[in-house]
Design a protein around this nucleic acid. Structure first.
Length: 254
DNA sequence: AGTATCCTGGAA
DNA sequence: TTCCAGGATACT
């Protein structure tokens, strides 16, 4: 289901906020407005309204934005629409949020203006290489740094590095041109694959229609601790890098 | 660059 | 009871 198609043209008739932290702004700004379309910047979903405001949605780790469905203990916000339809925002850990911004200022919004280039939009190979050359930070940290590259999270960073055969700890500027090129292609590939499979419903994520994504059935290395490497059968190791679970085949990834 | 912090709950 | 989770930020 295309969220945009469902939302477009629908009027917001009410907003019920169960957890203030999940919807910190004044809901009056969006009441009675009609949704005109959606945009996406990195991991932020933007729902534009016809009254000059936009809703910004970030699911973080456990957020779910659902069309319909049942209200549960983790329902934080209910956005009522016409004809009894509604959007439900569930979020177990309350890290996610729905914020309001001026539509014209969305790009200037503090969070969005700081986002880096997107692999599937404007990150060219040249820009990618330039970016890596500027830092000695571990390559996985750079891939996940939203201010440098936006949209790549822990799962896709792990998988892209495995696919490209690169150790996540490698200082970014140490990657030579052809290796950086392989990584660039790998990032594009895992992201496309993630989208094709509807995302990874590993823990909490589900699609707006309540169905699960299938990328978790195609993880390359993420979550495969102690399991055989899909390429060489060596045992996958897990450690923490920048505080995040990092999976690596010590044989394939150098 | 590493660590704590915001939260909750399922698994170890 | 401790550890860990698709994220991001504010601190040493």
């Amino acid at each position: 289901m295309q969220l945009e198609k469902f939302l477009r043209g629908k009027k917001i008739t009410g907003v019920e906020i169960k957890t203030a932290k999940s919807f910190p702004d004044d809901k009056k700004k969006v009441l009675g407005a009609r949704m005109t379309g959606t945009r996406r910047f990195g991991k932020v979903l933007v729902i534009d309204l016809d009254n000059g405001y936009s809703l910004l949605v970030h699911l973080k780790l456990t957020g779910q934005l659902l069309v319909g469905g049942t209200i549960g203990p983790h329902t934080r916000v209910i956005i009522n629409l016409e004809k009894g339809q509604r959007l439900i925002f569930n979020d177990l850990r309350i890290f996610g949020w729905i914020k309001i911004a001026d539509s014209g200022q969305v790009i200037a919004d503090r969070l969005i203006s700081k986002l880096g280039l997107e692999p599937l939009k404007d990150l060219t190979l040249t820009k990618f290489k330039d970016l890596l050359a500027k830092t000695a930070r571990p390559i996985k940290i750079v891939l996940m740094d939203q201010e440098k590259i936006s949209g790549v999270g822990n799962i896709y960073a792990n998988d892209a590095l495995w696919l490209a055969g690169i150790d996540p700890r490698t200082p970014a500027r140490q990657l030579d041109g052809s290796t950086a090129g392989q990584l660039y292609e790998a990032v594009l590939e895992v992201l496309k694959k993630g989208i094709r499979y509807g995302g990874a419903s590993d823990q909490h994520y589900i699609k707006p229609d309540g169905t699960k994504g299938k990328y978790q059935e195609h993880f390359l290395v993420y979550g495969r601790e102690k399991m055989p490497c899909l390429r060489c059968k060596a045992k996958i190791e897990k450690f923490f890098l920048g505080g995040r679970g990092t999976y690596v085949c010590e044989v394939c990834q150098k």
